[in-house]
Design a protein around this nucleic acid. Sequence first.
DNA 1: TTCCTTCTTTACGCAATTTTTACACCTATC
DNA 2: GATAGGTGTAAAAATTGCGTAAAGAAGGAA
Lengths: 235, 235
Amino acid sequence: MMDGRNSLVLVVEDDLQTRRFLKVNLGRCGWRIIEAENGRAGLARVKEEQPDLIILDLGLPDIGGVVMVSRLRQLSDVPILVLSARSQEQDKIEALEAGADDYLTKPFSTGELNARLQALLRRTMKALTTDGVFVTGELTVNLAERKVFMAGDEIHLTPIEYRILTLLIRYAGLVVTHSHLLKEIWGGEHLHDNHYLRIYMGHLRHKLEANPARPKYLLTEIGVGYRLVENQAST
Amino acid sequence: MMDGRNSLVLVVEDDLQTRRFLKVNLGRCGWRIIEAENGRAGLARVKEEQPDLIILDLGLPDIGGVVMVSRLRQLSDVPILVLSARSQEQDKIEALEAGADDYLTKPFSTGELNARLQALLRRTMKALTTDGVFVTGELTVNLAERKVFMAGDEIHLTPIEYRILTLLIRYAGLVVTHSHLLKEIWGGEHLHDNHYLRIYMGHLRHKLEANPARPKYLLTEIGVGYRLVENQAST
DNA sequence: TTCCTTCTTTACGCAATTTTTACACCTATC
DNA sequence: GATAGGTGTAAAAATTGCGTAAAGAAGGAA
């Protein structure tokens, strides 16, 4: 199941059918929806309800797409996903320049919409938590104080272990390749010796994972590198 | 309807009837058309008008298909769609290897033609719009995170499987020839061993297709290569 | 020095992946 | 129908890559 729980999405769209489609499908994925059928109403609802995300149709009857985006931007920094018909290629580019964060061309699939919405949320979340503390599931890393906690207990990491972890945090959710890790931690020498990595990942897992044989946070991407899982909403 | 506005298409085709058919149907879809009835004229018009896309018949009276493709390639990087009769199986492969981007076998439908032309155009614009997520139908590939989803479930791919898939995504909607795939994945050695490809395409279909025997996404182009279907938008 | 922590090196068992091998299929042509 | 070319499946064997344990080496602090 996708993870859009608790997130409030405002749909600004004049076409009833599309609105209904969005309501049903987003609702099914756990998003909370509010609606507006024109630009004026949309702006009002943003002030009232402070949504976490806005889906904006570019072809509104009362306010043009670009204008709408910039007005929304005056109100808040909420991520905006723009919907455009095929005939509005130009509008869509202008909308992005005016401050929209992503776009989707009609018709689109539920899967695609979901993927985009989550990517948007994740991007903005990440910016928020950049106060020096990284959290995923039961793992908390205080980068400012160089402290690592697992399920409340402070964990001592050696310098190399810590550097590996912070590198993974910097690219949380993404795969960091063997060569990237090796280069960053040991310098350009042992470039083809994944051996060290295996050992240190073993150490990290031993310290951070409840079951090192079935890691929840530090995942192996065979033949490629390692990945630190992000956004593990703790149960 | 479809979006070919502003795009200039050069049709190089000696057969009057085909030319007329293309002119009417492409015009109706919003493409702007210029024509040439032989290779020499075709080359001239490319220099004069700099089209966005070329449709090239392989059976021209004055210049052979392969030669024509390479001459065009000397002039520009414009995407080339090759038209071939059933009897020209071999020619079409050579044309692709000479630098053509896709092919269509006569007779073809307007819908097919349009889809191909758009895939070609999109490919040239793709560098701009790639946000790291590829979607077609229920298949979602997050290239940034190196994750693959089918109908919401994450699918694990092995390194080779993933590389094949991403190569197909890079040319989504277009054919990728056997030799292209082999060269890209295994290097210049096993160049005539389609065997590996069959096996790995089998694996991919097994993992990504609901019914591997009747693939919806990973299509076989007999004698040529494979094609990943794009833009399967489920309203 | 001795103790302690950390890093490096070595060795080995296991699992995932790739390669090899073998065979069944489908379609078109003769 | 037989045959051949291109194709898809299924399983093995071989290879590679991964994880663990444990012993030696380097540095720092008491």
